[in-house]
Every structure is written in C-alpha cells, then in structure tokens.
Amino acid sequence: MSFPITRHRRLRGTAGIRGMVRETILNTLDFIQPIFVTYGTGVKNEIGSMPGVYHFSLDMLKAEVDEIAALGIPAVLLFGIPETKDAIGSSGFADDGIVQEATRLIKQWYPELLVVADTCLCEFTDHGHCGMVHTHTVDGVVHGDVINDASLELLTRTAVSQAKAGADIIAPSNMMDGFVQAIRTGLDENGFEHVPIMSYSVKYASAFYGPFREAADSAPQFGNRKTYQMDPANLREAIREADSDVLEGADMLMVKPALAYLDVIRTIRDQFDLPLVAYNVSGEYSMVKAAALQGWIDEQAVVLEMLTGMKRAGADIIITYFAKDAARWLQG
C-alpha cells in the first residue's frame, strides 16, 4: 500500500509549496479583451445583459483602450455596430467602416497593442446572417438559405479592408466552408501575407451566445445558424473542421464557446500543434455576473478558476469579457 509512505497532502501544506508545484499558470498575457464600437458621439452605453460591458463611440473609445493597455492586456478583439445595414453587409468592408476607423485610432494610440478584427457579416447585414442569403416566403413566413461560395468573396473583402486599416490579426468567425483559404488568398494577393488568421475553426450553434446578440445587434431576422455552425453534440466533427482550416492556412485555431466545451478544447489541443484560442463567450460571462450580483458566488474566485480550467484544458489564449478584471486580480 502507498499510504502512509505516500501522502499527497505534503505538496498542499503551504501557499509556497502549492505555488511551486502548480501545473497551470494563468497570466495577463493569455487574454484578449473584446470591445464593441458603434457610430455616434458621446456613446458609452452599458449592455443590459452584460453588466460592465459597453458600446463605445469612437470619441469615447480611448479611455477604454488606455485602461486595457495599462493593465498589460496584449490584445483587443473588435466588433462593430454600423449606422446602416444592407443585404450584403457592405459596412463591414467599407474603408470608413466602424471597425476600420476604430482600428486606425487604436494603432495610432498604442502601436504595440494587438488589434484582432472579427471578420463576419452578421453585424452588418439587415438579415443578421453571417453571409449572403437567398430568401423565399412560404405562407407569409420568410425562409432563407445562406449562400456559401458567394459569401466568401464578401468575407475576403472584409478581411482585406481590416488589414489595410492596420489590424494585426484577422479572426474570421463566419463558419462558411473554405473561408480560411479564401481569406488567406485575398490577404496574400493584397500584400498582407504577414497578417495571421485566427480562425474560429470550431464554432458551435450555441445557446450561450444570447447576450452577444444584444451587444452586436446581430440576431438573425429569420431562421437560425444551425446550417453553418456546429451541432453542440458533436466532437469528431470538430477535428474535421480544425483539420480543414490547418490545411487552408490558419495560423491559430479557436474553440467557441469554452465552458461547456472543455473536452473539445482538450481534443483539439491533442490533435494539432497550432496556438489554440478559447472564447469565453457572452452567456458564460453573464451567468457569472448575474450570480455574483445576487451574492451567490465569489466572482473573483469563480472567474479565475474558470479561466484556469480553460487553460488547463489546452488553451494558449483566452478571449474573455473578464480580461480587465482578471488582469487586476492576478496583479493583486
């Protein structure tokens, strides 16, 4: 018998010993902070379902970026809410689009702060889907099919416009087949072969995105996204999706959401050697915030444990709305 010769508690007796043998270390450099930028002036509006997260107009953005940079968070992820929307999401690839303008400002203020541009059309289309759609009406109800190949051209235009504005990393989240190859080709042909692609490789059709729909004003006007985002029940499919993106030239892979998909993160980590990103999504954030506001949990302890779990599962990078708070807590 191992006991009493072996006593596992010997390595748990003091904070110093626990720290010395700790296997997973959470660090501020692991984080990316999402930001929602919008049109208008003087806008800093809290998102109702996401306490502590705001919409910022460009004139109100600098204070937020100042805080992120001061905390040592290395990167931001930009989402844009445009003034106008149309069927093809043209505001998404306009040179004066909201994401492009925000990118230019941030790179002017903080050249070393990494700007990650979310590359999708859902925030910019009037129908709320991530690509072009073909619609038809049956008994007064609008139905639509997302057109994969035609959408790739628009997504590529969006990525190129973001790179021209100064985005350091392109993060396509649309889940169209072939999107990495199309965007990689477009970037390379326009002189941006040095710009990496952080692919939303494994993105599930998840109920955890609910608050984001409010934040990004991107709820589908008809149907849902289950024909192009993954079934939450599937794991082997995640390997196929990631493998396709690797072959097409992705530089980083992502699993989204994170909390209910730690097994997927571990599987992708074990199968591929590219840097792996976990997206701690809006619903995961809002659940913790709601419980903390009720006094039911210790927010700091729960958040740091949750983020550590994502890193322990295999994530190298974590996109999280808790990035600023977590950075403060880690720095004491």
Results as ranks from 00 to 15, higher is better:
Glu83Gln: 14
Thr24Arg: 13
Lys311Tyr: 09
Asn280Phe: 11
Ile25Ala: 11
Ser90Asn: 06
Ile169His: 09
Gly332Tyr: 11
Ser201Met: 00
Ala250Asp: 12
Thr28Pro: 05
Met60Gly: 04
Gln300Pro: 00
Ser244Cys: 10
Val277Gly: 03
Thr6Lys: 15
Ala290His: 12
Val141Tyr: 13
Arg18Val: 00
Leu154Ser: 06
Ala159Leu: 01
Pro257Trp: 11
Phe79His: 08
Ala315Pro: 02
Glu305Tyr: 08
Pro257Ser: 06
Val76Ser: 04
Gln331Cys: 02
Gln221Tyr: 09
Leu29Trp: 08
Ala216Lys: 07
Lys324Thr: 06
Ser2Met: 11
Val99Arg: 12
Glu248Arg: 06
Leu113Asp: 09
Val141Ile: 15
Ala182Val: 01
Phe212His: 03
Leu155Lys: 04
Tyr261Gly: 00
Arg12Lys: 14
Ser206Cys: 05
Gly140Tyr: 10
Tyr200Leu: 00
Gln108Leu: 01
Arg184Asp: 05
Phe192Arg: 00
Ile265Glu: 08
Arg9Gln: 11
Ser90Ile: 06
Val202His: 09
Val99Met: 14
Met287Asn: 02
Ser201Asn: 12
Gln33Leu: 06
Gly178Phe: 07
Arg266Ser: 10
Glu189Val: 02
Gly131Asn: 07
Phe36Tyr: 15
Phe56Leu: 05
Ala315Gln: 13
Ser286Leu: 10
Pro34Leu: 01
Lys311Glu: 07
Ala70Phe: 09
Leu247Gly: 05
Gln162Ala: 11
Val302Asp: 04
Lys44Asp: 03
Val281Gly: 02
Arg9His: 13
Thr267Ile: 03
Ile5His: 15
Val281Ile: 13
Tyr261Ser: 04
Gly178Ala: 00
Asp30Asn: 14
Gly314Arg: 08
Ala207Asn: 15
Ser244Asp: 13
Arg213Ala: 03
Arg236Trp: 07
Met287Ala: 09
Ser244Val: 00
Ala70Gly: 10
Ala250Asn: 06
Phe79Tyr: 15
Thr24Tyr: 15
Thr320Arg: 08
Val180Pro: 01
Gly40Cys: 01
Gly48Trp: 05
Ala102Arg: 06
Asp270Trp: 09
Leu155Arg: 05
Gly92Cys: 01
Ser161Met: 03
Met20Pro: 04
Ala69Asp: 12
Ser218Thr: 00
Ser90Gly: 09
Ile5Ala: 15
Ser199Met: 03
His127Glu: 01
Arg18Gly: 02
Glu101Tyr: 05
Phe212Lys: 00
Ile47Gln: 07
Ile17Met: 14
Leu253Thr: 03
Gln271Met: 07
Arg7Glu: 14
Pro51Tyr: 12
Pro220Ile: 00
Val21Cys: 09
Ala117Arg: 10
Ile73Asn: 02
Thr227Asp: 14
Pro211Asn: 07
His55Phe: 07
Leu58Ile: 12
Leu11Arg: 12
Gly144Leu: 04
Ile318Thr: 10
Val288Trp: 13
Arg184Gly: 00
Ala15Pro: 07
